[in-house]
Design a protein around this nucleic acid. Structure first.
Lengths: 417, 417
DNA sequence: CCGATTATGAAACGCAACTGCTTTATTAAA
DNA sequence: TTTAATAAAGCAGTTGCGTTTCATAATCGG
């Protein structure tokens, strides 16, 4: 095992002061004194590079391929693969036995990533439901558990529902809490900047009084974070490339709009979530939308369910109503889009639960995009959510995973406990 | 000299694939394969750490202090200081001869940063003027040169004014072009994402047709970037802590509003400039402000100069007009502020050139802040620009400097050409 | 002038990575 | 079945950086 000079407390909810390996191109935040490195950190860094190649290469790579891809020497990658195998993060893969594909010479060992070396938990808390998802290191769900709850459930009872749902996923997948490396909980309302507390959630009674992060940390013994649901949904869409399976670079500059009971949004710029000073970025529900029924109050009333259904059935009045709604949305969003210059706006279909509503959502999207095109300098693309109802849950898993991956990128071999 | 395995082309305008040492806390952008490191990179990184301490320590540090501050061993920092001294980035400092402060024992060598080891150039291009600033590595100006030009000047002639102003600063300071490490030019209008071209600048004739980056690179032989003026002003304000000399953490989440002929803004989130997908982030000049004279066209007409003067003289009508203007501004900005959740809004006083206008600016600020407070969830502080007319120029210097500091943070010793 | 104190210098060690060579396992041809 | 070709795996030996440890040099207070 490698111990790093920079090793902070690994149980901290924020993986702080680690070394991002990705290249930030332009002016970054002003830094304090940069960290120093010792020889031991080399191993950790290079192990991360090897691990990344093993994860992405297809078919399973051989040592020589790893050496070429990382530009490390073969003896070095060999030593690294041994360490990674010891830590359980990779394992030997069977050599492909297809007759024609085999090359002459001594057959090479091949390596593959072990996604089940660890797990993460994502939770989606809504007024009427609590859903927990246990996912492996490839963010593949291994167990999902949903609890229907009453909207007026008290905070502690809701927390109880969360822990019980999580515990159920663990039991279902026969995974112990110690195998969980991180957890993230998505919630409506505002979250503090450190992702440790729910600051405000007007439709969830006494929910802010619960120290849900503490509860989950006691349950799982790993870093836990809370985050706004729209923000997580944005992350989820980013992961899925917002529509395709292929990663889409335009998701690095994206605005996700969650059309729920209250309007919310998640903003991604430079590939990362925009959180703001108080963690309240994206709270577009308080915008004064023009022409909305409630003239004096901010916000945009949600579309009635029957209008959506009627529009899906091509009722002209309902279609017109949705088009008006889309234009209002675009109108209110225009200043935000001007300020952010996103490549993409993704409309979360939380408001259009079943597939029947999809045609209506498409009408809304078209109307909004068309109207926005006339208002903006560099109009973004508008898309419907690719994940639908699962966006928040997926995003929670991604959030948890990304905090783990920061560590994987720096000292993966120190994780084998 | 140290050669790094990761050495890219140092003359590239974007310092790509270098190692940011600052800790990015939460989910970062999805990365390709991380870079690997060799032993040589250790030296570069640790040298950067030592350099940073030398720059920030006061009084000039001794070897043992450097060792303590960096947690490196004394022999290591000694070797590093030698290299840094060879490269010209630091030098021996005289020992303080004050009788009382001297400690017993052999007197220690002390080291200090040499800001004149290199220089950067910042340029502020406006319709009626071109200003160049030559600054040292502490971003201290060593020469400033201003050229008044006609607003309808052609692009090539304007470029000529730029090069001539830059050359004048070099001559004035007796600095050769080879000593300039980076240059940044601020301009109105839109800039492409790579900071290499001016995409759009409706009030500058044929300015977009000039390859100003190429021209300056030929002149200076160093990385050159162009950036929107409001964005640079935001960087400048961030550097000055937006009002104080002390660095202010709240500038990491800041919106700078440039009240010029056209409204522009620069947004800083997470300590870095928000650029957007097309580099057009912050273009709030196209927002439809309510109640403006031109109902059908977007934007907000600038305040007439005589109104400003009258308000400064406490004329009630003028004061009221400015208050209305401030409220309109806050109204139009509210969606942006909701989406970004900044800690701070800085009003650029480009519209209020002389000190006489300051009282009027203060009226505007107060009215805007008061009105915004009622519209937002987490209202930001509102401040007047601390740099005034120099904001863009200062920001250009900072932008250029930050791109060289990225290098200084990674392989400072490879710079001694 | 002497001891206390602090900085500097030099040698030896550990660790990670690299180069170059030998050995091993396999396929294809004789 | 043997043999040559080929590619992987194993095994020193070297280099570079950082660290520890010990010895030496310079200065101050008495």
């Amino acid at each position: 095992m490698i111990t790093s000079r920079n090793s902070g407390s690994d149980a901290s909810p924020e993986p702080d002061a680690v070394w991002p390996l990705s290249g930030a191109t332009e002016p970054g935040p002003p830094t304090a004194v940069p960290s120093v490195v010792g020889v031991a950190d080399l191993r950790a860094t290079n192990a991360a590079a090897v691990l990344a190649v093993v994860r992405s290469a297809d078919p399973h790579p051989r040592l020589s391929e790893l050496a070429r891809a990382t530009s490390l020497s073969r003896p070095t990658v060999e030593a690294i693969t041994e360490e990674l195998a010891d830590s359980g993060l990779i394992e030997a893969a069977p050599t492909p036995s297809a007759r024609g594909q085999r090359s002459p010479g001594r057959p090479a060992r091949r390596f593959r990533f072990r996604p089940h070396a660890g797990f993460v938990v994502g939770v989606d808390v809504r007024p009427r439901s609590v859903t927990a998802c246990l996912a492996d290191l490839d963010s593949e769900p291994v167990a999902v558990e949903r609890r229907a709850v009453r909207a007026d459930l008290s905070g502690p009872a809701r927390a109880q529902a969360v822990t019980s749902a999580i515990q159920a996923t663990l039991d279902l997948a026969e995974v112990s809490a110690s195998q969980v490396w991180a957890a993230t909980l998505g919630t409506p309302g505002l979250v503090d900047r450190g992702n440790t507390r729910v600051r405000q959630a007007d439709n969830l009674r006494t929910w802010t009084e619960v120290d849900i992060v503490g509860v989950l940390r006691d349950l799982l013994g790993c870093p836990v974070a809370v985050e706004n649901d729209a923000n997580l949904a944005a992350l989820g869409e980013q992961w899925r490339g917002a529509g395709g399976t292929a990663p889409d670079p335009s998701t690095g500059e994206m605005v996700f709009v969650l059309l729920g009971e209250r309007l919310g949004s998640g903003v991604i710029t430079g590939g990362r979530l925009l959180r703001g000073h108080h963690g309240a970025a994206g709270e577009i529900g308080f915008i004064h939308f023009s022409g909305d029924g409630r003239r004096d109050r901010p916000g945009l009333d949600p579309l009635p369910a029957d209008t959506i259904r009627a529009a899906a059935a091509a009722d002209p009045d309902a279609v017109a109503a949705i088009e008006v709604y889309g234009r209002r949305l675009a109108d209110g969003l225009a200043p935000v889009l001007l300020a952010l210059d996103p490549a993409l706006v993704v409309l979360g279909t939380g408001l259009f639960p079943d597939p029947a509503g999809l045609p209506a959502a498409e009408i809304l999207r078209t109307a909004a995009q068309h109207h926005a095109d006339g208002l903006l300098v560099d109009p973004p693309r508008w898309q419907l959510s690719a994940l639908g109802d699962d966006a928040v849950l997926t995003g929670a898993v991604r959030f948890a995973l990304s905090s783990v991956e920061v560590v994987l990128r720096t000292r993966p071999t120190s994780l084998n406990t």
